[in-house]
């Protein structure tokens, strides 16, 4: 059973979804996360253990991404493999036998339509056991405020790619903090730095999806 769990983690890292998937080339014809997760559950492996393997696999590919050893396409293949695991685990979340770690509201701020990075973060965070509420792109402060109202205790993630939309990011943080001072906000995107995040009043900054997971798992919202 241990082997099955380890293989699920490896398939997440390598982006191997199922037996018929041609990717990656050196794993053609082998089982992927879809078959392995089903087999693991049938064999009595707990969903928590599978979720942990998934999270470990995403961490490994995330670390390689941070070191520029792989790029966004590999990360997206891993996210797809992880989604195949999550499809099997969804019933356990719905019945409450596996609890989400918390809620994470994410969106690209007003004036910005770039969403690839935001989507990647959403997928990786979800794969790490968080419930994700995705507000999409060009999201105005009021949309974030509504989402925080509807999801008490959530953490908020703001994304921007244009330098000039960082003003809107700052405004959004200000409005969230004014109405919900206890809500944690993490920011990310190409023009952001830790210094810029501090100046805006954000609680955290992450240069990549793994950074967001580390921030969330660091005790923001249990």
């Amino acid at each position: 059973m241990e082997n099955l769990v380890a293989r699920i983690g490896e398939c997440v890292e390598r982006g191997k979804v199922n037996k018929s998937s041609p990717y990656p080339r050196d794993m053609q014809g082998q089982e992927g996360t879809d078959e392995l997760t089903r087999r693991a559950l049938d064999a009595g492996v707990g969903p928590d253990e599978i979720l942990q393997a998934c999270s470990d696999g995403m961490k490994r590919i995330g670390d390689r991404f941070s070191r520029n050893e792989v790029f966004v396409p590999e990360l997206l293949m891993s996210a797809k493999a992880m989604n195949a695991v999550m499809a099997h685990l969804k019933p356990f979340f719905q019945t409450g036998s596996v609890k989400a770690k918390g809620k994470f509201v994410i969106g690209t701020v007003a004036g910005d339509l770039h969403d690839i990075g935001k989507n990647l973060v959403a997928m990786v965070v979800e794969g790490n056991g968080w419930e994700v509420i995705d507000l999409g792109v060009d999201a105005k402060p009021a949309k974030f405020i509504d989402a925080v109202k509807q999801n008490p205790g959530c953490t908020v993630g703001l994304s921007a790619l244009l330098t000039t939309t960082m003003v809107n990011m700052s405004r959004t943080i200000g409005e969230i903090k004014e109405q919900f001072p206890g809500t944690k906000v993490i920011v990310g995107g190409a023009p952001l730095t830790q210094k810029a995040a501090d100046q805006m009043g954000a609680d955290g900054y992450a240069p990549n999806p793994q950074g967001v997971v580390a921030f969330l798992n660091g005790g923001v919202q249990k």
């Binding site: 004036g111 910005d112 244009l162 330098t163 000039t164 939309t165 003003v167």
Partner: peptide, 10 residues
């Protein structure tokens, strides 16, 4: 282009 080189997208 607006949005780049510090020229506001607005």
């Amino acid at each position: 282009s607006p949005g780049y080189c510090n020229w506001s997208v607005s």
